[in-house]
């Protein structure tokens, strides 16, 4: 990571996220929240079904985020990425809380 990358908004790549909770626990502003549930998946040849975490909802509250980038740095699965887009005002306080879909839409395209 370099300090030159554009810290506009954080993009979530939901398929890469394993719900490990590391970003939530490391965020100094406590502004990431994750809802998830467990599912059992049976794999061929496996003796027992495996329990996996499934992401239900991922939110970042950009009203609290201080753009430190710790979440992007610590994610072991590269599921969080900085994107340059920086103009996302909101008319209400809750409009600064970006949910899974909104976070995923902050692509570079």
């Amino acid at each position: 990571m370099t300090s030159r990358e554009p810290r506009g908004v954080i993009q979530l790549i939901p398929d890469a996220c394993t719900v490990c909770m590391i970003c939530v626990q490391e965020c100094p502003s406590w502004c990431i929240a994750i809802d998830s549930h467990h599912e059992e998946v049976s794999e061929e040849g496996a003796r027992r079904p495996r329990t996996v975490s499934v992401l239900d909802r991922f939110t970042i509250d950009f009203g609290l985020c201080m753009y430190c980038g710790i979440c992007v740095d610590v994610c072991p699965f590269d599921a969080l990425e900085w994107q340059p887009q920086h103009d996302y005002p909101a008319a209400t306080r809750s409009g600064l809380e970006h949910d899974t879909d909104r976070l995923a839409s902050h692509g570079s395209s």
Partner: peptide, 23 residues
């Protein structure tokens, strides 16, 4: 405030002792 990183469900059961938020 409740820490958003508080383990819940299975993770809480697996945790050996209650985890305090960093700091």
């Amino acid at each position: 405030r409740e820490w958003p990183g508080t383990p819940s469900g299975d993770d809480l059961r697996r945790a050996r002792r209650p985890q305090l938020p960093p700091g």
